[in-house]
Computed example of a mutant assay.
Amino acid sequence: MTATAVLHEDTQIGLVQIRVSNLERSLAFYQNVIGFQVLRQSGREAELTADGQQVLLVLREIEHPQVLSRKQAGLYHFAILLPDRPSLGLVLRNLIASGIEIGQGDHLVSEALYIQDPDDNGIELYRDRPRDTWKRDAAGDYIMTTDPVDVDGLLAASEGLTWNGLPAGTVIGHVHFHVGSLAEAEKFYVAALGFEPTTRYGNSALFISAGGYHHHMGLNVWAGQGAPATPQNAPGIDYFTLQLPDRQEIAAAAKRVREAGYDVRETSDGAVLTDPWNIGIHLMVQN
């Protein structure tokens, strides 16, 4: 396969590993409120799944944790993509039953619900509208907004269905980070790694993707220009995986990142990168 200057169109987010302060408390939340299943648990780590096979989320308990600050670069939210609208409706029903505070937004390309875990790690749960309904503006950017979600419609779509946790077909759709500089983030994630911009909100936020998706990543400076990286002993994100079609695509991406002056570590199953705010990216071959 010929290497290109951008990530392959089939690139997808794989899993996300986050830090939590109390594994037992977080496991209860992620199973009962969100609907994950525990696939494996060992010591201070647990791997969570929706279908009983594919790991989507890893929880790592940290010792002597600091409180998460809103003035630091790092995780804004990770986003769980449901396969259809009735599934999102069932998620909403369970969130309402749990009594958790729920944010929401209709982004035209998708319908989304927003919550925080017990450590204030941000989580989005959403469903996409069909890709042929997504619209672009004159500059070629996807048109996205934040309108009220049709909550009654979501509940109606799931009427009479039974909540059994997250359904098969659930994946991690995207990740969204606070960064200290949009220019530096674009240099790393676009110019070096190979994502392509899809929507830009002035000098405050940038959305990027591979293969024409509305966004695999959101990047914003809402925590402040020059925001420092979240400490490793505070809740937040350790890393996420990017799944590429083959080792040649991984090698091409790693080469671009290395030539741009960033460190790359080769591994037995791919490559490991670290962005300017200490967020890890593991490049792996798709299952």
Rank of each mutant, 00 (worst) to 15 (best):
A156P: 00
A191Y: 12
I96W: 00
T145C: 04
T199D: 12
Q116L: 13
A192M: 05
S209M: 04
Y213T: 07
A192Y: 06
A185F: 10
T170V: 03
V175K: 03
E101N: 11
E159N: 12
G194S: 05
I143Y: 03
M217N: 13
G169Q: 04
P130C: 02
R129G: 10
D117M: 01
A185P: 09
H214E: 08
I100Q: 08
D152E: 13
A192F: 03
V149A: 00
E111F: 08
D120P: 03
G194K: 02
D152A: 15
A139T: 14
A191W: 11
G160N: 07
V149E: 01
I115L: 14
L108D: 11
A138D: 14
E186G: 08
W163R: 04
V190P: 06
A156I: 02
Y142L: 02
M217Q: 15
Y189K: 03
V151I: 15
K187W: 14
L125V: 15
S110V: 06
L125F: 10
H216Y: 12
G103W: 00
D132F: 09
Y201C: 09
G153S: 00
L219P: 11
D132Y: 06
G211I: 01
G202I: 05
L166Q: 04
N203G: 14
F207V: 09
H214W: 13
V179G: 03
L155G: 03
D152N: 12
I96R: 09
S158Y: 03
Y142R: 01
G180N: 12
N203R: 12
I172E: 03
V151Y: 00
N164E: 13
D141Q: 15
Y142K: 02
T133I: 02
D137F: 05
H174I: 05
A112N: 05
F207C: 10
G165S: 05
D152T: 13
D150N: 15
D137H: 07
G140C: 06
E124T: 08
Y126Q: 01
T133L: 11
H174D: 07
L193A: 10
I115F: 07
R131T: 05
G212C: 06
D141R: 10
L125K: 07
D137G: 11
G211T: 00
E196N: 11
V190Y: 09
T170W: 00
P197W: 07
N121K: 10
G122R: 08
P197T: 06
I100V: 15
D141V: 01
L219F: 13
P197H: 07
T198R: 14
L193F: 15
